[in-house]
Design a protein around this nucleic acid. Sequence first.
DNA 1: CATTATAGTAAACGTTCGTTTACTTGTCAA
DNA 2: TTGACAAGTAAACGAACGTTTACTATAATG
Lengths: 197, 197
Amino acid sequence: MGGTKERILLTALRLFARDGYEAASVSDIAGELGMTKGALYKHYRNKRDIFESILARMEERDAEQAKEQNLPEGSPDEMAEAYAAASVDDIVEFAKTMFLYWTQDEFASQFRKMLTVEQFRSAEMAALYQQYLASGPLDYMTELFASRGLTRAREKAAEFYAPMFLLYSVYDGAEDKAAVASLADGMLEGMRRIADD
Amino acid sequence: MGGTKERILLTALRLFARDGYEAASVSDIAGELGMTKGALYKHYRNKRDIFESILARMEERDAEQAKEQNLPEGSPDEMAEAYAAASVDDIVEFAKTMFLYWTQDEFASQFRKMLTVEQFRSAEMAALYQQYLASGPLDYMTELFASRGLTRAREKAAEFYAPMFLLYSVYDGAEDKAAVASLADGMLEGMRRIADD
DNA sequence: CATTATAGTAAACGTTCGTTTACTTGTCAA
DNA sequence: TTGACAAGTAAACGAACGTTTACTATAATG
């Protein structure tokens, strides 16, 4: 008894992220793990089952991570309180953590790529992509700024989040990934002045 | 003799953008066009030939578009001259045109989505994605600001281009696309102050 | 009018797909 | 020691894949 089921999950995620769900075959996944495809079916009912386990895993991780941050995921009332209490430094720190999470964390990084390549295939995938990576974080940061009573909250949120979002893509294509990471860090440092108007 | 070859190209692009190259089948493409897959082979040698015709088409369009703008694509010397001559208003206008192009123009919009979903499959696709949509435009705008003698050119370029880049994705997932387009317009208007430091 | 080219169909080719089946092995509990 | 279970293999299944072939209808050309 080993972490075979886990290894299947991670390998499938990596191939789904690179090739897309349809183009990544069950044989490919099994081949990468040095086993035959028949063995996969001892651990998952079918290919779709692996995919949905990945989505479920991300949901778990997301819930855990929200608990570790003090920035909340709870009821509207709780959120409003925590928003108002958040300093600009808190927000910058939150953004840095978020960038490192989606670029450095192996699972999150591959999951982000998978959502990127699957987003146009169904309304469900489009919604998840928006929620995790596009309008979701943007709306979140808009609330963050609005609750602090700042004007032009939406524009500020975009000015704040957009560079991070762009740097995800630049990071993915970069040879020197460390350089992009430090560029992102410097950029976020510079962001502290956005809220000072 | 009709525009059958052209209709195949556009339909294939739409399906490659939605499903990815591998997952979009020759039968799917033919089915959308109300013909059998055998007919496709009277116009293209094989599936890959359709894909490469799409890439070639984008290259043509890109060259034409560069000619229509007065912002150049030529030798380093020409570029430096034109950069220095470009006013901030020119840059804002260029950015607006660019946003409309990648969201409203049918071919460009689908091509952008196709690159997005194919970018992790090969180094060639990764390079094209970077060139057309990520580090390419970012480097271009960095040069634009640097040639005008502005400090922090890279940061300014990112502040300028990043919101556009984010809004591509928000636009794709939006129900009210007109609202996102006008948000983008307002945001670019606000960008005129970036260069005033 | 006969011929040639074009653009289509229908069917078949060999390969790969996701999935199932029959069988083998090792481990561990009764 | 035996028997059940877990985790693997190899082979087969039908369906779908990209591609090729043989054939048909239509229209332009000598």
